[in-house]
Nucleic acid binder design. Structure first.
Length: 153
DNA sequence: GCCAACGTTGGC
DNA sequence: GCCAACGTTGGC
C-alpha cells in the first residue's frame, strides 16, 4: 500500500466534481514523464490526497482511492482534447492514467500554509522548491501526520 | 499579473 | 550532448 498526492486546479476539476461522479474517474491528461511513472507505480487500493492548486487557498481537501491500475490515456488520441498528443498515435502506451474513486472530503482542509508551518512535513515533495509535478508520492508518516491535521480518525 | 522554477524542444 | 529559448506551473 502506497500513498500519493493528486494535484488539480479546482476551476477545472475539483474534489466536489469527483464526489458528483457516479463511477470512478480516469485521472487523465498527465503529460509529464515523472508524474506518469508515479501513476504506473500505483496499485489498486493505494490512497491519495486530493490537492487543490492555483486557487485562492491551495489545500489538501480530501482523499481518493486508486481503483484501477494504469492503462493508456485515450485523451492523448483525441484531436479535440486539450491534452492531445499526436505522438501517441504511433505509441498509444506513451501516456497513462489510473482510475480514482472518491474516499473522503475533509471538513477542514489542510491548507498549504498549514503544511508549511508543520516542521515534521518540511521534507514533503509538495513543499520542495519549484515543485510542479501533478502527481507526487507521499510517505506513510506524512500521510498519518496530515490526516491528523485534518482531524480524521 | 508577476515571477521563479522547471521540463521540453530544437539547433548546432 | 550541450544549452538557449520557450511554454507551463503555481504561489503570491
Amino acid at each position: 500500500m502506497a500513498y500519493w498526492l493528486f494535484k488539480s486546479e479546482p476551476s477545472s476539476f475539483s474534489l466536489e466534481d469527483l464526489m458528483a461522479r457516479a463511477a470512478p474517474e480516469p485521472w487523465s491528461g498527465v503529460r509529464n514523464y515523472q508524474a506518469r511513472n508515479f501513476m504506473r507505480a500505483m496499485r489498486v487500493g493505494d490512497l491519495g490526497f486530493f490537492y487543490h492548486s492555483s486557487c485562492a487557498t491551495p489545500a489538501i481537501v480530501g482523499e481518493v482511492e486508486v481503483v484501477r491500475p494504469y492503462y493508456p490515456d485515450t485523451t492523448a488520441l483525441d484531436p479535440e482534447d486539450h491534452h492531445y498528443d499526436p505522438r501517441a498515435l504511433a505509441n498509444p502506451e506513451l501516456w497513462s492514467m489510473v482510475d480514482v474513486a472518491f474516499r473522503e472530503r475533509y471538513a477542514r482542509p489542510v491548507t498549504l500554509a498549514r503544511l508549511k508551518d508543520c516542521p515534521p512535513l518540511s521534507g514533503m515533495r509538495l513543499l520542495a522548491r519549484g515543485n510542479r509535478l501533478s502527481i507526487l508520492p507521499v510517505t506513510e508518516e506524512e500521510w498519518r501526520i496530515i490526516r491528523g491535521l485534518a482531524s480524521v480518525a
